[in-house]
Nucleic acid binder design. Structure first.
Length: 714
DNA sequence: ACGGGTTCCACC
DNA sequence: TGGTGGAAC
């Protein structure tokens, strides 16, 4: 639960920017002919039309909602356009959306501290910019307020009464007798409106926003008026907003805590919560949560915007529902390979683009025991030091899986029953990489310096991109256990391993998807009538995919992988961090967001359309190739082999992972000049982040000199 | 036979 | 810690 912190210096200006049905927008940008149509994004369409994960507002009018299947959606809305999430290696591939989210973050981060809260949500701390604006160019002095700003919803104002649209808002925004707090929020509203238009211009995505004095309130506000609108929460409106609010609507209270609040204390609205003393709440839910509850009921939240643009971990996983449950070790291995392959690519991109290194590999699985009534079994998640390179990841992930499996089976063995007739199936697998730190100096001299002083570099392959490659996953203890497992073949594990029914497994896609358009397609005139192409756009040839031994063949895979170590890393060209290189927009001015798309509907200019829109609709070819999943019985041996090699000197090596924030800068001066320079470069992003807050004053954007729709392409 | 795939967090 | 459980999008 969130930590209860005291309110920091109040009168912060916090915004939450929330992309409207984001995946849908991403797909509509790829296929503009979908714009304006009821549209939903589904993943996997073979079973009941796939699961809906994003629904356009047009489609919501028909009652289509999440947790529906494509088929149900079709019933409610026969003309709904269902777009499939790209699939790579047999699983959903979200890179397209991740990259699109990065585009947005890159824009927002130009103003104020910025926290990427999820793939489609960004918090902004605009306190500094708002203060600067208030002192240099306050709203009350502005002769023109942008139309989008005027469309803000100001909580507490009676919009019914606002006959002339925007006049009430204008008055509120420009009041000269407003409190300092309100004036800052007004500045925030202006800034956010501008940012939202900027996002639209540069990405074609609309978003909604909440502007308030803390994250919690901003978050609540952002969802009050969607899509493509913004809502301001003046302090005076907080109580009126919160009191009637069902407690479950509060972030963090949508689950068990919210339920128990209701069932234990009879609390159903935030107003109800107000009646309980802090002590009482602490009695029930502990000091932290108690205090936190007491605070949020009053709209108090000291939660700070973190200033983090990049994710803290990378993970990928897949569920294997029902009949798809994995029944053989070979299929588990095969899927782990695929998952690791994807993870490896993402790690490599992160390394290339952000100079960050992940240090921990974690594997999670869910297994079911069939036959018995008692089905779900706890599978312990396992982690180990992360080694870069696809084969290493694959090898280690498999070891982690085996180690977890063995634990489960050991416990099971101690169990009285469960002996004779039980089989295991795996219903979920995931691997993730965490503990991501800035790579100590992106360049070489420091590494060289330390390496030359390294005592026991056993092989030249010890490092890959400066990252230790030799740490060994922990987990399996010893051979005794392994042999016990071996001896156990006749029982549970044997059934599991020997199970020959493998029908359920999916074949893997051989192609995978990449986002190649993104920002660069900015503002191409598109016309829905343009034969927007047979967009079967196969990129296989461009990709230097590692030629992984197609998996599950035999127990020597690990050894083969070993032999190829270091040679299989594929490089993913990425579109991130391209924000600065876009072409100038020729777009006229910043009309309100509503008008934006109309303005776009211009005849298509032929040359632009030649660009393949890369929409790579893989789902059309939904290859039915049944992949060769001829696993033999060899895996019996495998499980033992794998359990063998675990657990060696994993903690021997020191990895000097440094956190820039922890550096005593006075030390730097004592280093050789070359190294000094590098360290300073390395530290620079931090400094720049600070400097960015001062950035070009918003006064530049909103100077009175400009009238009406500005044409600022700075 | 299912909202799937992620990500983050507090707690022990 | 590492691992678990919960919550959110």
């Amino acid at each position: 639960m969130p930590v209860a912190r005291p309110e920091p210096s109040d009168a912060r200006v916090i915004a939450l920017i929330d992309m409207d049905c984001f995946y849908v927008q991403v797909e509509q940008r790829r296929q503009p002919q979908l714009r304006g149509l009821p549209t939903a994004v589904v993943q996997y369409n073979s079973w009941k039309g796939g699961g809906l994960i994003a629904i356009s507002y047009e489609a919501r009018k028909y009652g289509v909602n999440r947790s529906m299947r494509g088929d149900e959606a079709k019933k409610l809305c026969p003309e709904i356009q269902l777009v499939q999430v790209p699939v790579a290696r047999g699983k959903a591939d979200l890179n397209l959306y991740r990259n699109a989210g990065s585009e947005v973050v890159a824009i927002l981060a130009r103003k104020g501290r910025c926290e990427r809260a999820s793939i489609d949500e960004v918090y902004l701390d605009l306190t500094d910019v708002a203060e600067a604006m208030l002192s240099e160019n306050p709203p009350e002095k502005l002769e023109a307020i942008d139309e989008e700003t005027l469309k803000s919803h100001i909580l507490g104002l009676d919009e019914e009464v606002d006959k002339q649209k925007g006049e009430l808002a204008r008055e509120w925004l420009c009041r000269s007798n407003a409190s300092q707090q309100d004036k800052l929020l007004a500045c925030g509203a202006i800034i956010v409106a501008e940012l939202r238009m900027q996002v639209l211009r540069e990405t074609e995505f609309t978003c909604s926003a909440g502007i308030a004095h803390n994250k919690m309130l901003a978050k609540l506000a952002s969802s009050m008026n969607k899509p493509s609108q913004q809502t301001v929460v003046p302090s005076s409106a907080v109580k009126g907003m919160l009191d009637p609010l069902p407690i479950k609507k509060m972030k963090q209270l949508g689950g068990k805590l919210g339920s128990s609040l209701q069932s234990d204390l009879g609390i159903s609205t935030v107003g109800d919560l107000l009646k309980f003393s802090e002590e009482k709440l602490q009695e029930h839910y502990g000091t932290n949560t108690g205090t936190w509850l007491w605070n949020i009921a009053r709209g108090i939240s000291g939660d700070e915007v973190e200033g983090r643009l990049l994710p803290k971990s990378h993970g990928c996983g897949k569920n294997f529902a029902g009949p798809q449950a994995l029944k053989t070790l070979a299929s588990v291995e095969s899927w782990l390979k695929d998952l690791c392959e994807e993870l490896s690519e993402r790690l490599q991109s992160d390394l290339d683009q952000n100079k960050r290194v992940a240090h921990t590999l974690t594997l999670h699985a869910t297994i079911y025991k069939t036959n018995d009534t008692d089905q779900l079994k706890k599978f312990p998640s396992k982690s180990c030091p992360l080694r870069y390179g696809t084969p290493k990841l694959q090898e280690d992930a498999l070891k982690l899986f085996n180690s977890g499996l063995r634990e489960v089976l050991d416990l099971q063995r101690a169990d009285i029953q469960g002996t004779s007739k039980s089989a295991w199936v795996v219903t979920h697998l995931s691997v993730s990489a965490g503990k991501i730190l800035a790579k100590p100096s992106g360049t070489h001299s420091i590494l060289r310096f330390f390496h030359s002083h390294e005592s026991s570099s056993s092989s030249k392959e010890q490092t890959y991109n400066g990252i230790d490659q030799n740490s060994v996953p922990s987990g399996g203890e010893n051979q005794v256990v392994v042999n016990e497992v071996e001896a156990n073949k006749k029982t549970t594990i044997n059934n599991y391993v020997n199970s020959s029914s493998i029908q359920g497994e999916q074949q893997k896609e051989t192609s995978y998807h990449k986002d190649t358009n993104s920002i660069l397609r900015f503002f191409h005139n598109r016309d829905p009538s343009c034969p927007s192409q047979e967009q079967t756009y196969n990129e296989i040839s461009q990709n230097s995919m590692p030629s992984v031994p197609s998996g599950s063949e035999n127990q020597m895979a690990a050894d083969q992988a070993e032999a190829k170590k270091g040679t299989m890393i594929s490089h993913v060209k990425s579109n991130l961090a391209r924000g600065e290189t876009q072409k100038e927009t020729t777009q006229k001015g910043s009309g309100p967001i509503l008008r934006f798309f109309q303005a776009q509907r211009a005849p298509c200019t032929s040359s632009e359309n030649a660009v393949p829109s890369t929409s790579g609709t893989e789902h059309e070819q939904e290859s039915d190739r049944v992949s060769a999943h001829e696993e033999s019985q060899k895996e019996k041996v495998e499980i033992n082999d794998n359990m063998n090699s675990l657990h060696h000197d994993e903690h021997r090596r020191k990895r000097w992972s440094l956190n820039p924030e922890e550096i005593d800068t006075s030390v730097i001066d004592e280093l050789p000049p070359e190294i000094q320079r590098e360290i300073r470069v390395w530290l620079q992003p931090i400094k720049r982040a600070k400097a960015a807050q001062r950035g070009p004053s918003i006064a530049d954007y909103f100077s009175p000199a400009k009238k009406g729709p500005q044409s600022h392409n700075s």
